[in-house]
């Protein structure tokens, strides 16, 4: 093994287990701690940035302890810390201290989808229903669109935790299963609750069904198709036709 590789192997293992550095070398021990702290803090800060609602729900102190556990178990593998925390929902499902909030993993999932939407490609969204669109048209979803069906109202809870939410919004959240829809019209990520008709319509489009078939599915789910379609267009959910094959 090269000298550099053998040094890096020993250094990386000391970073993982700073306790293994001999106590006879206190300066070295402290330096390893400093390096470890810097890397861990960067990961934990990134996680805190990417999961603001989970953080608000559990409180800063509890989140910090949980983030330290996550960063230990799932250290960054990509230098782009702006997209750190992909497995946080799975980690939360098994995180005992938050056992009384089993739906927290769903909130983490939604916040991750928010990050994915934030950094998705800038393809143009379909902005009008006129033109070449008919019942046979198959629309593609915009790359920033994400959907999450969950057995707790995570989208409503997310909305209630935004700075612009009305006072008392959290208390008024009705506890029921929900489909969350994440889109990014005009460079701003939005989260909304998709009613069953809208969720059915969008899922049908995602499966590649024609607008006519998607409308039938939505209608069967009890939705007002014209209203649903207009809301999805306004939310930038579909790709502009010319962008489909790019």
């Amino acid at each position: 093994m090269s000298d550099l590789l053998s040094f890096q192997r020993r250094f990386a293992s000391a970073l993982e287990n700073p306790g293994l550095v001999p106590a006879a070398h206190p300066t070295l021990r402290r330096a390893i701690r400093v390096h470890r702290n810097t890397a861990m803090k960067a990961a934990q800060d990134a996680l805190a940035d990417n999961y603001p609602v989970v953080r608000a729900l559990v409180g800063e102190e509890a989140f910090a302890a949980c983030a330290a556990g996550y960063a230990e178990a799932n250290p960054p593998c990509d230098p782009r810390l702006c997209i750190y925390g992909r497995q946080f929902d799975a980690f939360l499902s098994g995180y005992v201290p938050f056992g009384s909030l089993p739906w927290l993993a769903g909130m983490a999932r939604l916040e991750w989808l928010h990050i994915e939407a934030l950094v998705a490609a800038d393809n143009r969204a379909l902005s009008s229903t006129s033109g070449q669109i008919g019942v046979d048209t198959r629309l593609s979803l915009h790359p920033a669109v994400r959907m999450l069906a969950y057995d707790a109202p995570v989208a409503s809870l997310w909305l209630a935790h935004q700075p612009w939410a009305a006072a008392g919004a959290i208390e008024r959240v009705e506890w029921q299963p929900e489909v969350a829809l994440v889109t990014r019209p005009a460079h701003k990520v939005i989260v909304m609750v998709a009613d069953p008709g809208m969720a059915a319509f969008l899922s049908a489009c995602e499966r590649g069904e024609s607008l006519g078939d998607a409308a039938r599915t939505a209608d069967e789910a009890g939705g007002d198709v014209a209203q649903i379609f207009a809301a999805l267009i306004a939310a930038g959910a579909f790709l502009k036709l010319e962008w489909r094959n790019r």
């Binding site: 000298d3 550099l4 990386a12 390096h35 890397a39 250290p75 960054p76 990509d78 230098p79 810390l81």
Partner: peptide
């Protein structure tokens, strides 16, 4: 500096022995 080792990205600028070998890499 170096940051990556064994699939992990250490978000810090880690030290190393300044050898001719390291210089080559």
């Amino acid at each position: 500096a170096w940051q990556k080792w064994g699939g992990t990205h250490h978000s810090d600028f880690l030290p190393f022995p300044r050898t001719r070998e390291a210089l080559g890499f």
